[in-house]
Design a protein around this nucleic acid. Structure first.
Lengths: 201, 201
DNA sequence: CGACCTATCTAGACGCTGTCAAGTTCCTCC
DNA sequence: GGAGGAACTTGACAGCGTCTAGATAGGTCG
């Protein structure tokens, strides 16, 4: 159950870790399956046994990403006030936390066609993350977005705002105009919160 | 100046067109320089002469993308009312038009590390596109965002909203929850405009 | 008219990539 | 203790981007 045997029984997990490390080091576009195998200390053909293809490995990695996205959001929620709006802002800030901490993984999850979106694990994890946002908006509006089109519009607006913000931040596009890199701590949180709040208008 | 000679004098332009065609057909992640060369009817080494590398070709392509983004925005503006808010909404809708009409090019421009952002042509074109947004917000607020931090926050919010919306739309993520695919015409424009307007709150 | 010169493109080689098929090693269970 | 399957290795293949050397066309000048 540990490792280091010929069949070390843990390779799938190790490959995922190695893949993420490669993603961080080389970026998503220079990602190489063979480099992942080498990093994990196995032959270049080994990954194919556990994940059918490079696509399969990246799909699995992206799926874990959605799970960790939810964790980042819940971490924020647990430190926020209990008012619905505060909770929704926390969900948004958690979204930004995750994107900033894992920019390449974030891109893999949302802006890449490499993961197979039809994959069951991927789909479940992605839907769970979407559900988080849905819950937040429901609490604020006091009704279920799934049943009320206008509330669903509110979900779309919130998602678009936080997602666009995340995407612009990790591509460094707000560093120049907003000088976002030079702001930190509470000032930064305040600024981002104010922007996120606009989506709720 | 036309084509079909050995040195047909037009290859750079033809390569750009071929590259975009390949982008549309195969997607950004399966993009191949050799396929572009084949499509243009030249040897696989030919592109290197005009654009130093694949990166160079994609950088040039992305740069033209920004120029066409501005054109899409101006097309919308010319059909909109003259009120500042209407003009800004038009700029946003043009942004969405462009993204929906050229999803892979949009991804190349905003979410890829393949283009060289230090390239002069790329930088100028990208800054011009950003300037469009800046102008729109200035007219609405009546002051220059470059000089007023609070107005620049407004720019960031507007950009994040429209950019996030574009990104979610082209990845099909609003088709399910919002059923956006089933809405069209004026209904659709109204819905998108209402979301964009929220950023101005 | 002919020779050169430079811009433009071709052709081949290199090491890398992902995938596949066949072979090898280890573990388990009968 | 032998069989069989699971986990991994090995080698081959086509396609990729880049580099280098060579071929060719067009224009310029003697």
């Amino acid at each position: 159950m540990t490792d280091k045997t010929y069949h070390h029984g843990n390779l799938a997990v190790e490959l995922l870790q190695a893949a993420e490390r490669e993603l961080v080091l080389n970026g998503i576009e220079a990602f190489s399956l063979r480099a992942v195998a080498k990093r994990a200390g196995v032959s270049h053909g080994a990954p194919a046994y556990h994940f059918k293809s490079a696509r399969g490995l990246l799909t699995a990695l992206a799926a874990t990403g959605y799970e960790r996205l939810v964790e980042a959001q819940e971490a924020r929620q647990s430190h926020a006030g209990s008012a619905p709006k505060e909770q929704l802002i926390a969900i948004g800030l958690g979204y930004l936390d995750f994107a900033e901490a894992n920019p390449d993984l974030f891109r893999l999850m949302f802006s890449s066609e490499k993961p197979d979106r039809g994959d069951a694990h991927f789909d479940i994890a992605a839907k769970a993350a979407f559900g988080k946002l849905l819950d937040g908006v429901r609490e604020v509006l006091g009704r279920d977005p799934s049943a009320h089109p206008s509330a669903m519009t509110q979900v779309a607006a919130s998602w678009a705002m936080v997602h666009g913000l995340a995407d612009l931040i990790i591509s460094g596009r707000l560093d120049g105009p907003l000088a976002l890199k030079e702001i930190s701590g509470p000032d930064r949180e305040m600024l981002l919160s104010r922007i996120l709040l606009k989506a709720l208008a």
